[in-house]
């Protein structure tokens, strides 16, 4: 065994060894450690091959964490939609059987809308006053 290792060492330093022979050397010194610098050297080489403590994400697969986020977002979306639909249904259920009462409710609603419209009309009057002033100023400038 010793002569085999010596032979491999010679080949290694001459640059004539194969990858498998180099692996054999590293394995030998790992199993038979000694205090010689060469022994430490080959053991050191094997140490360098220690797998790194890092992991990489598969580019084609979303991570577990991302999946949870997506699932949570979808669930929240579905819940919101369900609540909105339920609320809209409740509003549709509002019916009045008595025609007189229905007329009064409609009248009130229309009054409310028309008062809003009138309010809007007052704003348009104010806006037209501003326009008048602007035209006046323009005419003045031209003079």
């Amino acid at each position: 065994m010793e002569s085999r290792i010596k032979e491999l060492q010679e080949k290694y330093w001459k640059g004539e060894s194969t990858v498998s022979e180099e692996q054999e050397l590293k394995a030998y010194f790992q199993e038979n450690p000694s205090l010689s610098p060469e022994s430490s050297y080959f053991r050191g080489l094997q140490k360098m091959q220690t797998p790194p403590k890092t992991s990489f994400q598969h580019p084609g697969k979303t991570s577990q964490k991302t999946r949870w986020y997506v699932a949570a977002a979808v669930t929240a979306g579905l819940l919101t939609t369900a609540l909105v639909v339920q609320d809209a249904r409740k509003q549709h259920d509002f019916t009045v059987d008595d025609p007189k009462e229905a007329f009064e409710i409609t009248q009130k609603a229309l009054l409310m809308v028309s008062s809003g419209l009138n309010e809007g009309k007052s704003y348009t009057t104010e806006l037209s006053n501003i326009n008048k002033a602007q035209t006046y100023l323009q005419l003045k400038q031209e003079d």
Binding site: P37, S40, Y41, R43, G44, K47, M48, T50
Partner: peptide
């Protein structure tokens, strides 16, 4: 890089 591992093993000379 490689050598940090070795340092841990007190092989600074390498």
């Amino acid at each position: 890089s490689d050598l940090q591992t070795l340092m841990a093993d007190q092989q600074l000379w390498l």
